[in-house]
Design a protein around this nucleic acid. Structure first.
Lengths: 105, 105
DNA sequence: CCGTATCCGCTCCGATACTG
DNA sequence: CAGTATCGGAGCGGATACGG
């Protein structure tokens, strides 16, 4: 992971929910915490918060907090977060091909 | 993972050693078990065997066994195994870019 | 509304010992 | 040479409860 850019990249988006989160942010541009949680059936606020934290530290996600009561926090993709899209598309294309091959029998 | 080709693809190559194994097989075309283990410092025969098994079940790796004493087994990439290369290249390119961005401060 | 604190099961992986 | 059998630790992720 230290010398291999592929492993480094995978490290950034590994985890059960991170890709789904990135996908939602790609669909939505800007989205609030609760709305995000509603769009990710099964995720707990613990995992969502933790995943968003890590994605923010990796500069993939931007967090905008408004000092209001009740609180309001908006999440969006950074430039770097948006730029992963082609790579994921390539991987998805291969994945679909692999799926066919494996389930051919 | 069942409905998402990206997650399906990642599932196939996830694990600590699988990408390194695919990398070695890409460099070498054909390689024997012990030689592979020598080229992957730190891997145990348990993990190597298990990883190769799974990669073979996913049709990424071909296993050719010769009925000799002592045993001789050769591993190589399948067509599907070779076809993942562009996707990994794309991911690696993004990973390098992310690495710079993150370590820029 | 947007989180944090805590506990807990489960899977991944390493270490060690053994075999045809 | 090319594996298998078995045990054990560490970390990921789920459930629940609580807080500003």
């Amino acid at each position: 992971m230290e010398g291999c850019p592929v492993r480094f990249a995978l490290g950034l988006v590994s985890g059960k929910w991170k890709l789904r989160i990135l996908w939602e942010l790609n669909q939505q541009e800007i989205i609030r915490f609760n709305e995000l949680q509603r769009r990710l059936p099964g995720i707990s606020s613990v995992m969502l918060s933790k995943s968003l934290d890590e994605l923010e530290q990796c500069r993939l996600v931007h967090r905008e907090q408004y000092p209001e009561i009740p609180p309001k926090v908006e999440y969006s993709l950074t430039e770097l977060g948006r730029s992963i899209d082609p790579a994921l598309k390539a991987l998805g294309a291969w994945g679909a091909q692999a799926y066919e091959q494996i389930h051919a029998n």
